[in-house]
Simulated scan of single mutants.
Amino acid sequence: MLAQYRDLLGARHLDVGPGTAWFLKHTRSGSRVDITLMDLNPNSLETASARIASLHPKTITADVLEELPGSVAVYDSIGVNYLFHCLPGTWDDKGAALDHLAPHLDDDGVLFGSTILGSGVEHNALGRRLMRFYNRVGIFHNSDDDVAGLQRALEARFREVRVDVVGRVAMFSARGATA
């Protein structure tokens, strides 16, 4: 995942659901990157912003499943690392996030990220228990998330799509938004 950030991070970057911004902190991008962080939770934004304070990130509090506010600009890259398995619904429902983000990509821009798959991959005993628990309490919403659904959701919105499964995680990138 760190390699994705190092290889695909653009000069104008939006990170959606940035967590603690660990990946952004470790890209060694320096001050040449204009970073915007977006999350539904202002506490998460505060934590992520503090971690990369030297990069002077902008923040936007918004729900990626809803129309995005006017303050969302156009970016060279959009990162959605470990986001989709936390969004409710099927791949059709989660596709709304892609519909809202795609118009904010520059013509040559790239959307990239990763997600934990719940279906079509083998989880060990501990992993199965954690997945059941996280899905039951609403932390995850990925019981039916499979790589084919992710591929379809991306291909419906982008011309160039790459999806690789590493263990139980799908890592992906997409270019050429069709919307």
Rank of each mutant, 00 (worst) to 15 (best):
I60M: 04
Y5L: 12
W91Q: 08
C86I: 10
R132F: 10
G113C: 12
D76W: 02
A156R: 09
L83D: 05
R12G: 12
I139W: 08
K58W: 05
H85P: 01
H141I: 05
A3S: 15
R162A: 13
L40I: 15
L87H: 07
G95A: 14
A153V: 01
P57V: 09
V110W: 00
A102Q: 11
D99Y: 09
H85S: 04
L24A: 04
V110T: 15
E155Q: 12
S44I: 13
P57M: 06
I35M: 01
S49N: 11
R51Q: 14
S114L: 01
D106G: 09
G19W: 01
Q4W: 04
L24W: 05
Q151I: 08
W91A: 11
I78A: 00
A62L: 09
L101I: 07
L68D: 05
T20G: 13
D107F: 11
A21S: 15
A174L: 01
A148K: 11
T27D: 00
D106T: 15
D145K: 14
L101D: 02
G138E: 11
T59A: 03
A125C: 06
D63M: 06
S119R: 15
D145R: 10
L37V: 13
N142L: 00
A148T: 13
L45K: 14
H100R: 12
V121I: 14
T115G: 02
A102L: 11
A3V: 10
A153W: 03
S29P: 07
D99H: 07
V121H: 05
H13D: 02
A177M: 06
M171N: 01
V161R: 03
V74P: 03
F23G: 06
K58F: 13
D107W: 06
E66N: 08
V166C: 00
E160M: 08
N41P: 05
H141A: 14
